[in-house]
């Protein structure tokens, strides 16, 4: 059975929030919107977001690393939010595994959000229904769009190309290969939810600064003159300041 999902590369995600912003922009005016805002220009702005980006620091000072975790609905294969829904408004599509909410049936009891260990469902106080990531189903199946644009808004907008979309059960898909080759992992594996969205692990990147300096300060480097010029100008301005103070 097909399972559409996102694969997010934590190695390249820079935590710029572009995915969350574009998600909000697209979905607030598309088929599953709006994503209501409360007090948007006041002191305590808040609202409904399908996608939130968390930042974590790992390790102990000075050996620390920061990574960003974009978290939207994981479209679990054993979604615990679906069976608890008393009206059947929350459902998982058989053809592509996307978990959706039928706003016309939702009574706003919030029980599905209590049954999500990831906190990926948000209650819309204005519409009085539960809302969640739809994997931009209205884009994915929109035949009026060019084929390369039939992807979720967050995937298309990611400037670091950290997000991939596809069928994680299809061995030919880009996401299946990414998960296989780079040991894709899921959040909260012990909860028995079997999430669709996967993350690609962050690998430690080391830059040898000595090598870098040697290269950049070589006279045959086309940037050499520019580097020296900037260095000269900054030194000169520093001297001028000292003279003025003196």
């Amino acid at each position: 059975m097909a399972q559409y999902a996102l694969v997010i590369d934590l190695n390249t995600c820079v935590g710029c929030h572009a995915c969350a912003t574009n998600c909000k922009e697209w979905n607030t005016q598309a088929a599953f919107g709006p994503l209501s805002d409360y007090d948007p220009y006041g002191r305590h702005p808040s609202g409904v977001w399908y996608n939130r980006i968390m930042s974590y620091e790992i390790g102990e000072f000075p050996n620390t690393q920061v990574f960003h975790l974009p978290k939207s609905c994981l479209h679990c294969q054993d979604a615990p939010c679906v069976p608890v829904c008393p009206t059947g408004a929350s459902y998982k599509r058989e053809q592509d595994g996307i978990v959706l909410v039928n706003y016309d049936d939702c009574i706003g009891c919030k029980l599905c959000s209590w049954s999500c260990p990831y906190g990926c469902r948000e209650y819309d106080e204005a519409d009085k229904v539960m809302k969640k990531c739809t994997l931009c189903i209205d884009r994915v199946y929109d035949e009026t769009l060019p084929p390369e644009h039939r992807k979720p808004a967050c995937v298309l907008t990611c400037p670091a190309r950290a997000r991939f979309f596809g069928d994680i059960e299809d061995p030919e898909s880009e996401v299946f290969k990414a998960i296989e080759e780079r040991n894709g992992f899921v959040l909260f594996p012990d909860m028995g939810t079997n999430p669709g969205n996967h993350y690609l692990a962050r690998t430690e990147t080391k830059i040898n600064l000595e090598e870098f300096e040697k290269h950049i300060l070589k006279p045959d480097n086309p940037l050499f003159l520019e580097v020296m010029k900037r260095h000269h100008v900054s030194n000169k301005s520093a001297e001028t300041t000292v003279e003025e103070v003196g």
């Binding site: 929030h17 969350a20 305590h44 702005p45 808040s46 609202g47 409904v48 977001w49 939130r52 980006i53 968390m54 930042s55 974590y56 620091e57 920061v66 959000s113 948000e122 209650y123």
Partner: peptide, 11 residues
């Protein structure tokens, strides 16, 4: 946790 993505409370 360094940052949770929003400056105010959310749902």
């Amino acid at each position: 946790v360094l940052d949770t993505g929003s400056t105010t409370e959310n749902y």
